[in-house]
Structure formats: structure tokens, C-alpha cells
Design a protein around this nucleic acid. Structure first.
Lengths: 344, 344
DNA sequence: TTGTAGGCGTTATCAC
DNA sequence: GTGATAACGCCTACAA
């Protein structure tokens, strides 16, 4: 293999020193026009490419940003990552990604590894049950900015981007009420997680604010999958006083519920109106498109990246924190609105 | 910010030299049990973490592998990436990802950047219209192994993982013929791309092998989206002798076709049986689940990672090439099989 | 078994 | 404006 050309090679060729070459390459003002031109030319000629590792070692900081997510192949996360990448790439940053598989242990290990690699920052959606914070504190102590998105954990000197889950849920519930619904069920997931309690509260408040009696029996906790959605629907519809609408905190839950309901002869939205959450792609492709709440993943990614850039530019991970809240968007489709022109 | 501890700090504390510390940390045999133990202990005490940049600079190679895809938020690619990450993470590699947005120019730039970052390897699905190969040759010349997946380009000394598109297409067509179909349409995309010509050929050969007359009029070229799928279906059904089945090279095309067909009163699969390609998640969630061909993205990712590892271990990017072909899986669902028990 | 010294490719601080 | 020199953190002949 041929050896990469270094600034020394260029220097030798021109009978100058590496220092001068470096200056020429870095737009340092203390250099003559002539030598700069000469250096740039021969650099191109010799196919010179700077070694970023060396630069990073010198500066104590690389151009890598660690992006950590539970699973990269979930649409929401991959879209966020896409947003981050689009924003960071033009600024000269590369992104390193890693998956926690929703395990705290793995998350901690990953963060440590990223720090070993001297990343310039960390952008993360924490694992489902992460309680520990010291891996983040280590990062911040080492002056590596930490930005949370979607799922955050309470850490000093960190920034975050979330969507307003409360608001999204509130609006969706209001929408159902406006459709004339009086008994609205709620499928939730894990109420120990901030995003789900926010959604729960938005749902609850919208009901109470509308003067409707709140009924705890209409709230069902499940894991986020189709099977559980079916079971939850079954449970709700077997109540003495079953719901006429369902707000599910997950699109998969909504899908399961709809499948079960239709298989039992209920018609949607006439008998039961349904709204999901996340705007998974399938929701709009269904023959009966499912109303859902879009979480603005692209925006979220871009915003997270910008928050990182702000801190990076200030060169201070401990700079003023920002906690940005994006507004979700309610997408009303056929599953919750009777007389709707076809979506998609 | 507090300074990271280096091997020098440890050395100073123990009144030995950094070299000894390094040896202790790296399981070098030329060291006494005692000092090793001592070093390891104080390393832990002082929260020592090796600086990977320094290590990488020293070795001339980092622990980063570049993964380059057209768009990261496509399910297929994000799943492949997930597979790559799962395979590489335990081996101590981190992955850097970048999106080409299917632009050759961007792809070239990205590869150059990755090389500047001294990646240990590159795993890539090339941009749609990439013809240039010199960026890959540069990589290989610098002893950075290149592994292609799904979409490759002809480059010496590189490995690849593909699925057998021909076979997938052939099987799907055979399946339709076994269902009694005699006139099978084909929606394709860009026949200048290997994967699409392979699919086209598989389709064509299956027809010819079955003794059915091949009719070029039944082949429609489109972009991979729903709208075009609709238009293609319209075009096909307006033929004097319209098809009784459609094999689409993209699930979105299939979806568009199905939507149009049903809106015009055709019943599926009775009037027209439809099979898609890619096994996009929505295909199984539809009320009428769409038959499709799974491309085994997880396998593909894992395999690509393994191919890289082989070359990396040999320490020779120019080691024996391998071109692996994975078998796709035909998933027969309601859209192409009349009497089917419900999927999902 | 341990220490010394040099180098990986850059940049920054001095001098001149 | 340019040249020496040291330093970033680590590794590894070579010596001792």
C-alpha cells in the first residue's frame, strides 16, 4: 500500500518546513501569498488529505458526535438520526451511532466508549429504564455536551428536545370530543416514563376540561404491540359501559384495537373512533387510514443537532442549557372522522 | 474541566515509566505480575480510560467503520445498519454513518471524509447512479476494506452481499403462475440498475420457463411510489388484454396499484393478484395483507459486517474477495392467494 | 523485567 | 514570513 502523504512530504518537496505547510493549509495569516499558493498546489498534486485523527489528538476533540438510540431500525429513531446527520454533516461532523436495545447497562458502556473515542458531543434518547446518570455527568465533566431527545433523564448542564406529548394527547382527545364522543378510552404503556404520563395527563385534562366525567376504568396499560391492542380493546368493550372512542399512545396498539373491533363487527369510526400516536407509516396506508399524532422526528433531529452545535461553538459543554419543546401535529384520518375525504 | 488521566499520570503515581504502564494495560508478557496488578488497580482508581485517538494515530487505523447508505430512514437500510452495528459493536468497532441522498457527488465526498478519519473499513450501498469507482479504489489502495451490500458497483478487491433478486422474482412469478395466472404484469423501476434487471429477468424467465407467452407490453417502468403505482395499474388495465396478476418490484408500487384497482371495483386477488417486493412493514398490516419478498436486511447487515471483519483480521484489504448471495423469502399473503388464513 | 527514546501527523509557541 | 521545537497520548524497538 502506498503511504499517505503528510505535510512533511509537502514540506520536503518545497524545501520548507512542515510548520509552514500547516500554516498555509490552515489560512494562517502569517504567511506569504506565494508560499501559500505553492503549498496548496502541491498539496493537491500529491493528493494530500489531512489526518483527522492527528488533528483531533492535538485538539483533544474529534469531529465525531455520538448518537445513541434504543433501536436504530424504528422509523421514529431512524428519521431523527437522518435529521441529525443532515444538520451536522455540512458542519464537518460525522456521527457515530449505537443502539442500547433499551438496556441501561449497554447504554452506560456505550457512553464510556464514545468518550474514549473523544467524541465532540453526545445526542441521545435514553434507554427505557435508565435511572443512572453518572455516565452523563462524566461526559459533561469532560466537556462533552449532552443533548437528549424524546426520552430524557434529569441531568444538570444538558439540553433537550422533546415534543409536547401533553398537548398532542390533549388535542387528540379534544378532537374526539368534538366528534361527539363521550366515553373515551386510553391505551397507555409505561406510566413511569415521562412521555407516557404526559400523554395520560393530556388525555385526562381534556376530558375534565370538557366537563365529561373521567373514568379510570377506561384506561388500559399495555405493551406497545398489536396483540396487546387487541386484548385491550376486548377488555374495554366488555365493560358495562364501553367506550365510543379510543386514544392509543401507540399506533401498534391502535392497529390491534381496530383489527379486533372490526373482526367483532364494530364499525369504525361510527361505533368507536380511534386515534393512535407516532404517525407510523402504515397508519396512512391502511384502507382505513388511522388518525395519529406526528412527533416531528425530522425537526427533532435537526433541533437536537443545533443544540449541540450551539454548545460546541461556545466550546463549553456547560453553557446555558436549553430545553426545547416541539409541537406535535394531529393528523385526522378516517379512523376518527366519519365524513372525511380520502387521505393519501 | 478536569483533565483525563493518561498513562503518564499512572506512571508518576507508581514511580515507574509510561512504557511499563502501557505494557501492563496491554497484556504484554514482558512484565511482572506485581506491577501489572498494581497498574491495573491504580488505573481503575484514577478512572483511566485509554484515548482511542492516540491509539488509532499510532496504529494508523481507527476502530471506526464507515457505513454509507442512500437514506438512513428507509426501513431496509436502517435494518441493515442495525445488523451491522450488532455484529461490529462486540468486536470493539464503532460505526459512522452517512447518507448519500442517492447523489454520486455526495458519495465521493463522504468516502473521502471517511478516509480522512482513518476508518478501518467501509460498508456501503452505492448511490443510485454512481458510475465513478476511483473513490473506492483510493480506499482499497489505503488498505481500507470495502464491502458492498444490496447495490454494488464493479470494483476490484472488494466484497459484497446481495440478495438473489433474480431468484426472488422468479419464485414470486412461479407462485402467481401456480395460482393459475396467465398474464402477469411487471412494475419495475430503473433497468440500468443491476437489482432491477435481475428482478426483471427472473420474472421473464419464470414466464418463459412455464411455457407462457412473454408480452413486453405488460412491463411498466415507474418510480417507486404510490402515485406511479396507480398510474401503472391504470395503464395495464386499459390494455386490450389486461393482466390477471402483477409483480411489482416495489411495495409502494404494489400498494398504489392495489388502491387503484380496488377503487375501480376490481377484487384482489380474484381479478388481479398482486405481489410486492421488500416486505415493507405496512404490507403485513393492511386489511388485505400484501404478498411480498423479504430481502433479509438483518442477515445482510450481519453478513456485510462479517465480510469486513474477515478482511480486517487478515489486516489486508486486498485479501480474497467474497461475493455472498442471500436467498430472499417469498411471503405469500392475501393479495395473491385466494383462500388464505389470516396473517398477523 | 523495566527504562529510554522515537515516532504516529498536526498544531502552537517560540524564536529569528 | 519562516523555522525549530515541543506537545497531544500511546506504543514499541532497543538497551540495560
Amino acid at each position: 500500500m502506498e503511504n499517505k502523504t503528510t505535510i512533511y512530504d509537502i514540506a520536503k518537496r518545497l524545501n520548507i518546513t512542515a510548520a509552514t505547510v500547516s500554516r498555509a493549509l490552515n489560512n494562517n495569516p502569517r504567511i506569504s501569498k506565494n508560499t501559500r499558493k505553492l503549498v496548496l498546489e502541491t498539496a493537491k498534486e500529491m493528493n494530500y488529505e489531512p489526518n483527522r485523527l492527528a488533528v483531533a489528538l492535538k485538539n483533544g476533540k474529534s469531529n465525531m458526535v455520538g448518537v445513541v438510540v434504543p433501536y436504530i431500525d424504528r422509523k421514529f429513531f431512524s428519521t431523527v438520526i437522518g435529521g441529525i446527520e443532515s444538520e451536522l454533516y455540512p458542519e464537518g461532523y460525522n456521527i457515530i451511532i449505537a443502539q442500547t436495545h433499551d438496556e441501561e447497562k449497554r447504554e452506560i458502556e456505550i457512553i464510556r466508549n464514545l468518550l474514549k473515542s473523544q467524541v465532540a458531543g453526545i445526542i441521545i434518547s435514553v434507554a427505557r429504564f435508565t435511572k443512572e446518570t453518572k455516565h452523563f455527568q462524566e461526559a459533561i465533566k469532560s466537556d462533552v455536551p449532552v443533548v437528549f431527545f424524546d426520552r430524557r433523564i434529569n441531568v444538570n448542564k444538558s439540553s433537550s428536545v422533546m415534543i409536547d406529548d401533553y398537548q398532542g394527547s390533549y388535542e387528540a382527545t379534544k378532537h374526539l370530543i368534538e366528534q361527539g364522543r363521550k366515553r373515551i378510552g386510553h391505551l397507555t404503556v409505561d406510566l413511569s416514563l415521562e412521555i407516557y404520563t404526559n400523554r395520560y395527563n393530556g388525555y385526562k385534562d381534556a376530558i375534565i376540561d370538557s366537563g365529561i366525567e373521567f373514568d379510570e376504568n377506561l384506561v388500559v396499560q399495555l405493551r406497545s404491540d398489536i396483540e396487546e391492542g387487541k386484548r385491550a380493546a376486548e377488555k374495554l368493550m366488555s365493560l358495562n359501559n364501553p367506550p365510543d372512542a379510543i386514544l392509543s399512545t401507540s399506533d401498534y396498539g391502535a392497529l390491534g384495537a381496530i383489527n379486533w373491533l372490526r373482526s367483532k363487527g364494530y364499525s369504525i369510526p361510527e361505533d368507536v373512533a380511534v386515534v393512535g400516536f407516532s404517525n407510523e407509516p402504515f397508519t396512512q396506508f391502511m384502507e382505513l387510514p388511522i388518525s395519529s399524532i406526528d412527533q416531528k422526528p425530522l425537526d427533532m433531529g435537526r433541533t437536537a443537532a443545533k443544540l449541540f452545535l450551539k454548545k460546541a461553538i461556545k466550546g463549553n459543554a456547560k453553557a446555558k442549557d436549553e430545553n426545547i419543546v416541539l409541537q406535535p401535529e394531529l393528523l385526522v384520518r378516517a379512523s376518527s372522522q366519519a365524513h372525511q375525504t380520502l387521505t393519501n
